[in-house]
Design a protein around this nucleic acid. Structure first.
Lengths: 192, 192, 192, 192
DNA sequence: TATGAATGAGTCTTCATTCAT
DNA sequence: GATGAATGAAGACTCATTCAT
């Protein structure tokens, strides 16, 4: 660890460089997030932090050391899930991304719940912004290819994505219903 | 519902905005449901039953006499909200009903949340069935008028309705976004 | 219970007269305060609310129903202790009150701790004010009787009372030391 | 002690007002005690050991290496504070020492709190003994000079000192009230 | 020897539900 | 039937202390 100290009789200035987390802590942080994703997906965000700790195989104090409040944990989880979505947007066209994301919705229950608000006041302008940019690129490509009407704009695409995910999640759509519902939306995209 | 309470150890003064009591035997039940709708819409279903009792102007015991568990209260509330939807379906065509319902989504937060699951295991086959029937009639009329493609079936219409309501509610769509998003869905209805 | 209801189509005004607490609740409130006095006197204000409940023979929820936060409990306790002091001031002359109060200090550990601050931000202007008035009357009588120099004012009398109580409490003064210490203070009162 | 910390996941910048480190082996011990004095004075002895470590600029483990329990830390702190008092007793006459010590009471909150007991079972016969000796010498000098009645004995002088300090600390006496209160005590000393 | 992550018992507080009044 | 006090399990969070790195 590098450490720089400048001092005189009245002040001490200490600049400490260092990895913020030891390897074991990194590992635990990831395990906690994994556990949180699973637990909140299964029981909703009302599941207890204790349950998350149990599933992660750590003591409750460890969860709170990494995420001082439950909200902090939810925010961190959300950021990770959004980052994953952005990454996946890079691997699909607009329709594929819709299909894939809606299909995943139930599995990613937490994300949808969190996007939905769920009582907590979570704002993630940056992470959400990145997702919007990624989807914006897909939309441009689809419009350039003539697959989506020019009158369709990004805000309603995002809105439909969110609405479909929530519908899929909470409505328990099966694959067939998902396909038919998306078919309506895609027809809407095509004809404006 | 606005409500003002001033109290000390000897007096309580309660000023409640809202219609006066109905004189019949159901009055407490109705008041509790009204209060529950307002409270759960404002704070979500995590709001306490005590708060519902307070807003209804009855004691907590009275709430539990009418609805033995909190879940019973939520189910009753849900049934009433669905019945209102059915009634409204009778006053619109398919597109108008979509517009109206989505616009109301935020106001009917509770309904959407409950439809969404909210951790509670609520099955309401009957009430939901009635709503499906009502929407089914609207769909038939729209298809008869040539406004909706014949390939569109009731399940995806219901799915889109639910998805749009949740999107509107949790996404905080403004009127403009609502209109544009519904325009895409309506184009999808028209072109299948 | 008297109940006055005025209502029209838009407002309901309900004025409820009534004893705020049922007899059993009154009893529990007193038992909780008694228990709190004993527990906090024994272990300091850091003792747990759970311990207070245990000693009072009620469940933890009952304590919190009566005193929504621990601070509320401490404030209520303080008020009661100050009221007792005021009452006792009516039964002594200035010197007797000092002797009595300082002698009681250890028994009333809580009061002293609370007056002392104890981390909690408790302001009790009214209750403290009443005590000051009571001591003020004792001071006037003592000065009228020529037992205290006219130059002595109420603030320093209160200050000395508080200081002596804390000393007695935390220093564990025995009766002899108490007598001798107060003798010095009383000599100071007499000669200004 | 003023302290500024800026940190993100990779860097921590700590600006500490105060004398720089001593270069000898005791430096951590002394820094911890300095930090503890500041922290406990500011937040009371309920402040966390972690906060002390933070302010000292060391890790929590280092604090516990030097002081195996929190109580050990408090005892060490107490000893140092008492030693400082003894030293100051050598620089004043009895009245000056009283004035000075009472005036410092608020600044030395920790000492007063600890002397006061604070839930911890701390006995410091030696350190307290030295202070008593020092004050005893001041008392003899004052009596030799005729400024204090011969009937006044050391125990009550110590008792009054402690009581005044606690009163000053917890009562928040301003300078004027301090002067007037001490005037009464000094008159008591003079006339026994 | 210093570090700081992990532990887990303990604290305050909430709230669905019960039951004496 | 209505009332509202009592219950107690459960949850979020804290912190003294331990120990692997």
């Amino acid at each position: 660890m590098t450490r720089l100290v400048i001092e005189d009789n009245e002040w001490r200035l200490i600049l400490v460089e260092g990895p913020p987390l030891r390897a074991d802590a990194q590992r635990n942080r990831a395990r906690i997030l994994d556990a949180a994703e699973a637990v909140f997906a299964e029981f909703g965000t009302r599941a207890s932090t204790e349950e998350v700790a149990r599933r992660a195989g750590v003591a409750i104090g460890t969860v709170f050391r990494h995420f001082p409040t439950k909200e902090d944990l939810l925010v961190a989880l959300m950021k990770r899930l959004l980052a994953q979505l952005v990454e996946e947007a890079g691997r699909h066209d607009l329709f594929g991304f819709f299909r894939h994301t809606v299909a995943q919705a139930a599995a990613k229950k937490t994300a949808v719940d969190l996007l939905a608000g769920s009582g907590l006041d979570i704002r993630l302008p940056d992470a959400v912004g990145h997702l919007e940019e990624a989807v914006g690129r897909l939309l441009e490509q689809a419009q350039a290819a003539g697959a989506v009407a020019d009158s369709v704009r990004l805000p309603e695409v995002m809105a439909l994505l969110a609405g479909m995910c929530q519908g899929a999640l909470h409505g328990g759509w099966d694959e067939h219903l998902q396909t038919r519902t998306l078919a309506v939306v895609f027809a809407g995209f095509e004809h404006g």
